[in-house]
């Protein structure tokens, strides 16, 4: 199962890989990283239908924002789950995201327990 993480902070990749080192090693979980919305879309378009089943995206990024990316993904690949991870935990961003079809809304600092829970729930189905 392929999961895409989108964030302009490059250290996110290192963090996520360490956090999910057990899961990637023992379970069928593959992590893919993109550092901008455009890069994320490129990865999604690599195969048809895309093998990514879940996208976690930061909101505040240079260029395409996470919310724009959310809309584009929901438009082109409505079957893919998208959840937002943002430092902005305000209701405005939250409402926008949910309205646009986001599955969950995680705030930074990331609570990896709840994130792992979400991924585990996904893997069970």
């Amino acid at each position: 199962m392929k999961i895409l993480i989108v964030d302009d902070e490059k250290d996110v990749e290192m963090l996520f890989r360490q956090k999910f080192r057990k899961e990637t090693r023992t379970e069928n979980l593959e992590l893919v990283f993109a550092f901008s919305g455009a890069e994320a879309l490129e990865i999604l378009e690599e195969s048809d239908p895309p093998n990514v089943v879940y996208v976690f995206s930061d909101i505040n990024m240079p260029g395409m924002t996470g919310l724009e990316l959310l809309e584009k993904i929901k438009d082109r690949f409505p079957q893919i789950n998208v959840s937002m991870i943002s430092a902005y935990g305000d209701s405005d961003n939250y409402n926008k995201a949910i309205k646009s079809g986001a599955k969950e809304f995680f705030t930074k600092p990331i609570d990896f327990e709840s994130l792992k829970e979400e991924i585990r729930n996904l893997m069970k189905t």
Binding site: E9, Q18, K19, N60, S86, A87, K108, P109, I110
Partner: peptide, 18 residues
């Protein structure tokens, strides 16, 4: 700036945790 600080804080917290 919350965002700006949240990001390094996120790393500080999570890297120390990991």
């Amino acid at each position: 700036v919350a965002h700006e600080i949240q990001n390094p804080l996120n790393f500080v917290n999570n890297f120390s945790e990991v």
